[in-house]
């Protein structure tokens, strides 16, 4: 009797081990096949690209943990970038001081809070299924940005805007530090605070959590605000790296990628692991960078990664199916 009962806990560790195993395998595979792969340059180029998608994946994960989804993460990131970009261009186009950074981060975070609150209101208080609510707000947030910019990419920022992405204290790129920092914060918030505890409970059984005195609506609101804030931070990183802001950046492909990462990391209602997300983001990036290097010169080589990601996801589903028995339908 006890062996079957132990499953969930083991399962959680299994998923982490499985992912870690895949990561090690991939690193060895690409490392042995391509001399340059483990060299510093490719590592540091990964470290600049990966944080954006990693942070967006966390934004997605926390909403999946309460049995929802947030399709508007990328729209939020872009809106944050566009609005803070327009603000900087209008009020401090020549400034190179730290105030530019303050304005950029401050406005972005504010946008994150507001957009998150709108989602939280629709899902938590009106009761619209999150897939529909965020589909609508995705259109709304993108629509505001497109309307204000007439669909154009916003460029011409002061140099200092780029410093967030280009600085690398201690030789580590700043975006990567931000990602690690956010991962640690999310880990503590979800694992060690009552907010995280309530999130897990709400995701497991919303009726029981209501009867246990958890204020479901408030938790849903907090989750979506948190998700919005994380998205807006990703927006800041994107804006700083590309020195531009556009509503077309990433769009649906970024959203799909974050869902893919979440599914791969084994996130379901009531259960999510920041660590698994962290590893999974690395796996995807390693496949991307590695296959790009291996297939250098082959036509369309940059698209092999998409193919490999999809296949990997199916493989993991099947491994889980066989190791954990038949899932309940």
């Amino acid at each position: 009797m006890n062996t079957t009962n132990l499953k969930p806990k083991v399962r959680f560790e299994m998923q982490t081990l499985l992912l870690a195993g895949i990561l090690v395998f991939l690193l060895l595979f690409f490392g042995l096949n391509d001399q340059g792969f483990l060299a510093g340059r490719s590592i540091s180029s990964m470290a600049i690209q990966l944080p954006e998608i990693g942070i967006l994946s966390l934004a997605m994960m926390i909403t999946v943990m309460i049995g929802g989804i947030n399709l508007s993460i990328n729209a939020t990131a872009n809106l944050a970038a566009v609005l803070s970009g327009l603000f900087i261009l209008r009020f401090m186009p020549e400034s190179q001081g730290p105030m530019v950074i303050v304005a950029m981060v401050g406005i972005s975070l504010l946008i994150g809070v507001i957009t998150g609150a709108i989602n939280g209101f629709l899902v938590g208080y009106v009761g619209v299924p999150s897939i529909l609510a965020t589909l609508a707000t995705m259109s709304i947030f993108t629509g505001i940005g497109v309307g204000l910019t007439k669909g154009q990419t916003v460029t011409g920022f002061p140099e200092v805007v780029g410093s967030v992405a280009s600085l690398s204290p201690l030789g580590i790129p700043m975006p990567f530090l931000v990602f690690v920092g956010i991962t640690v914060i999310a880990y503590i918030l979800l694992g060690r605070t009552t907010f995280g505890f309530k999130t897990r409970m709400l995701g497991t059984n919303p009726v029981a959590s209501k009867f246990s005195g958890i204020n479901n609506k408030a938790v849903i609101m907090q989750i979506f605000i948190f998700s919005g804030v994380l998205s807006s931070i990703a927006g800041v990183l994107i804006m700083s790296r590309t020195m531009s802001a556009s509503n077309a950046y990433g769009t649906a492909t970024y959203v799909m990628l974050t869902i893919l990462i979440g599914v791969l990391a084994g996130v379901v209602s009531g259960k999510g692991s920041v660590l698994n997300i962290f590893i999974t983001v690395f796996i995807l990036q390693v496949i991307s960078t590695g296959s790009h290097m291996l297939l250098a010169g082959v036509r369309g080589s940059s698209f092999f990664k998409d193919f490999a990601w999809g296949v990997l996801l199916i493989i993991i589903f099947i491994i889980n199916y066989f190791t954990h028995g038949r899932r309940k339908e």
Binding site: M256, F303, F304, D306, F307, W309, G310, I314
Partner: peptide, 30 residues
């Protein structure tokens, strides 16, 4: 895949979408 392995349709379609767009552009043309 959905019926044999009892998987959620959404999850499988996510994987298939990623896979097919990659397949097209890598193996067929971009």
């Amino acid at each position: 895949i959905v019926t044999r392995f009892n998987l959620p349709i959404f999850d499988v379609s996510l994987a298939m979408m990623t896979m097919w767009y990659g397949f097209i552009r890598f193996f067929i043309g971009s």
